[in-house]
């Protein structure tokens, strides 16, 4: 079947097997490999993309279901080679380690920030609850978002004692 969707403001039309999921369509048919596969079962959130304004696990959406949809992926986050403010805060706060969960994490947070410009700590945690990160322990990610939204009271630090 033929499907057409808009990814990061670019229109793509491709032949696609009805059984193909959106994740594999993005990675294999369009070549956008920023979105990762961590489990293929909707449990880890590594494949999170924004579909028509909502964060979804791309492994649980058929590409055919996304026909006509507006998709945003990590590749759309930086503009003209400049990191978005969210990405910059991730860098400043060391919110990245292995980087494999990072694209999905950014998309969950992007969706959150678009519906809530000043999310509290609990709302940030809820937004990324479905995004597993085995490296960071989440703390520096949460601080990055609090800082971005002007809510970080104390910069997290390593105390020297």
């Amino acid at each position: 079947m033929k499907i057409t969707l808009t990814v990061n403001d670019q229109v793509y039309t491709r032949e696609c097997a009805p059984s193909k999921n959106l994740l594999h369509f993005l990675r294999e048919d369009i070549g956008l490999t920023g979105t990762k596969e961590g489990c293929g079962a909707g449990e880890c959130g590594a494949c999170t993309v924004i579909m028509d304004g909502k964060a979804v696990n791309a492994c649980l959406v058929l590409a055919a279901e996304a026909n006509g949809a507006q998709i945003r992926t990590v590749e759309g986050e930086a503009k003209d080679g400049i990191l978005s403010p969210l990405q910059q805060k991730f860098m400043e706060h060391h919110a990245v380690q292995c980087g494999f969960c990072t694209p999905g994490m950014l998309m969950s947070l992007r969706e959150l920030l678009e519906r809530n410009a000043k999310p509290g700590e609990h709302e940030i945690k809820q937004a990324i609850e479905g995004n597993f990160c085995r490296c960071t322990g989440y703390q520096q990610i949460i601080e990055a978002v609090l800082d971005l939204t002007g809510q970080l009271e104390h910069k997290g630090e390593l105390r020297h004692v």
């Binding site: 956008l32 991730f90 860098m91 980087g99 990072t102």
Partner: peptide, 15 residues
């Protein structure tokens, strides 16, 4: 800052 932050934040780091 991590020297590998940019490519990981943009999804460009190829695994």
């Amino acid at each position: 800052p991590r020297i590998d932050a940019i490519e990981k934040l943009t999804g460009e780091a190829a695994y």
